[in-house]
Design a protein around this nucleic acid. Sequence first.
DNA 1: TTGCTTGCAAATTTTTTGCAAGTAG
DNA 2: CTACTTGCAAAAAATTTGCAAGCAA
Lengths: 178, 178
Amino acid sequence: MKGPVDLEGYLERLREEGFRLTGPRRLIIETLVDHLGSHLNARELMDLVQERDRTVGFATVYRTLELLVGLGMLNRISMEEGFSRYEVPDEQMHFHLYCRFCGKTVHLDGEEEKESLFRTWMGESGFLLLPQTFEIAGICPDCRRCLADEDDPDLTPCGKICRSRGGRFCRRRRGGEA
Amino acid sequence: MKGPVDLEGYLERLREEGFRLTGPRRLIIETLVDHLGSHLNARELMDLVQERDRTVGFATVYRTLELLVGLGMLNRISMEEGFSRYEVPDEQMHFHLYCRFCGKTVHLDGEEEKESLFRTWMGESGFLLLPQTFEIAGICPDCRRCLADEDDPDLTPCGKICRSRGGRFCRRRRGGEA
DNA sequence: TTGCTTGCAAATTTTTTGCAAGTAG
DNA sequence: CTACTTGCAAAAAATTTGCAAGCAA
C-alpha cells in the first residue's frame, strides 16, 4: 500500500479506451490499487478478489490482467520466479535490491535521479522510458556473512530455509537435498 | 553466441561442488554455453539438446537448470513473458532496452560504468552485486511514431503484429480482438 | 437491443515429483 | 559398490480458450 493512485481516474481511463466498467473489473482493479507496492501474482489477486466476491472466476482475473497490461495500465513484473506479478505503474520509477539467497528486498532512494539517468540512457537510442519497478539481484549483508562461514555444517545460509524455486539459491547442500 | 566462457572450467566447477559430470548435464551445459546471449527458455533448450540426443528428458533439463541456478552458475531471467529464460552469467553485466510494443531489443554500451554505478548503489546497502543482464522497458522510436499516428484505422503499431502475451501491448484494438 | 463480458469447464503450457533402472566416482 | 542421476509418466501449477448466458451502454 504505497503512494496515491486515483482509482476513479484509472477506471475512467478504461472506459475511455472503450471497455465496459463491469463489477468484476471494478473489483479486480480496486484490489490492485488497494495493494500498491505488493506485486501480487494472479493467484494472490484471485484470493483477495474472491474474499469480496466468491463468484469471480480466475479466467476473468487473467483476462482483466491481460487487458490492463495490453493497455499499458499495468506492469507485468517478474522476480525470477517463473510466474508473473503485477503492479499499477506509479508516475515514478522504483528501484529494488533483492537477495538471491533469502529473497529479502530493499528499496533504493534517490529514485528521481536514477530515473532521469535511465531516461538519458534510453533517450540515446530514441526509446521512451516507461515507469516500472527495477530489480537488481545481489547478496544481502546477512547472507554474505553466512557464506563466509561455510565450514559450519549445521549452518543454513541466513538460518533461513532457502527456496529452491524463486531464484534464491543455496550453495550448502552436500548430503542434503537440492 | 557472445563472449567467451570457459566450458571446461564451468564443468569443473560443477564437479568441485560435488556433483557428477554426466552425459546429459554435459550436453545441456554445452548447449547453454553455445548459445550465450540467447536467453533460451526451457523449451528451446530442450529442443536444442534433443537435436543432439533424443533420449534426454525434459525433467533432466529442468533439474539441471534448477541445480545451476541454485549454485549461482546460471541466471534465471524473465522478460515479462510469464515463463523463465536462462543465461550463463558473463563476467560483465549487460544492459538491454526492449520495446513493450514490438519486443525489439537494443544493447546499451558503457557497461563498465553502468556496472560500477550499480555496484555503488548496492554497496550503500551492504549488498554484493551479482553478474546479470538488465532489461529496461520502454517504447522504441518506430512504435513511438506509430502511436503518434493513431488516427489511421488501418495502421497496426509498427506494422507488426503485437503479441498479446509477452508484455507487449497494443492500444489499437477497437473492433478487433483483445 | 447489441455485442462486450463473464463463469465454468476443458484444454494448454510450464514446471515438479515419484520411482525403478542406470551409472559416475 | 554406493548413492547420485536419469527417463518416463503422472501430477501440479500457471495460463488460455470455447461457449452459452449475463449485462453494460
